[in-house]
Write a protein that binds this DNA or RNA. Structure first.
Lengths: 110, 110
DNA sequence: GTTAACTGCAATCAGATGGTTGCACACACG
DNA sequence: CGTGTGTGCAACCATCTGATTGCAGTTAAC
């Protein structure tokens, strides 16, 4: 399989404007769902759902701080996903380069 | 902005099992929508819609071959996306590493 | 111990999205 | 030239998903 399910899941999680806004904040500071709800134009529950989705794919982790549940962005999963995509992209490009080489050699032969 | 719209669009396109199946085939050979429909358990029109979406974000390009319209997977956009994700992930990890260092220095101070 | 803040769950809703069928059109191919 | 293969467009449908409101439960904080 060229695309592990995990990569697809991460991509699905990243295919949403709102989640990127959340991640942007969590990439700079640990924040609770309530804190995020004060910043973003969204209800706390909507944010909480997004956090569940992000945590499920490993883009975010949570830890308690007092009575708050704070979240932070994790770079590991994102980097791992990036490496897989890079490899796949490179493979596609190699195929195209090979096709191009064949076409050129045919052109020279004419 | 930490996440350009293009990256989000590519991720959204990649957050679908069916589209990965299509890309997997197009990464190995140029195929038309009709050819893909014979391989995958989907109608030609469903596939055509996915191809429009994939072409819109630059993951795929089309070229005519006789009366067929063949598609191929492009690695460039995927690689570019991967690099952006890698950078963002690295930034998140740097922040966590900094936090960890502060925590450790505080621990030593005790 | 009370209280208030933060979290979690359930029901509900509107809009986006993946998929299908049917038909019209066009142009290679014979 | 005809013909049929491949494409494109439109209408339609089911489902998924992002979001909201309301309420109940915990627990830190005072």
């Amino acid at each position: 399989m060229s695309a592990p399910a995990q990569v697809m899941a991460v991509c699905a999680a990243l295919g949403d404007e709102t989640r990127w806004q959340i991640l942007e904040r969590l990439g700079r500071a640990d924040l609770s769902a309530s804190a995020l709800a004060e910043i973003l134009p969204l209800s706390r529950q909507a944010i909480a759902k997004h956090l569940v989705a992000l945590e499920a794919v490993g883009l975010v982790e949570s830890h308690r701080a007092g009575r708050e549940l704070r979240f932070r962005a994790l770079g590991a999963e994102l980097s791992a996903t990036a490496r897989v995509l890079e490899d796949i992209g490179a493979a596609w490009d190699r195929r195209l380069a090979a096709i191009k080489m064949v076409a050129e050699s045919l052109g020279e032969g004419e």
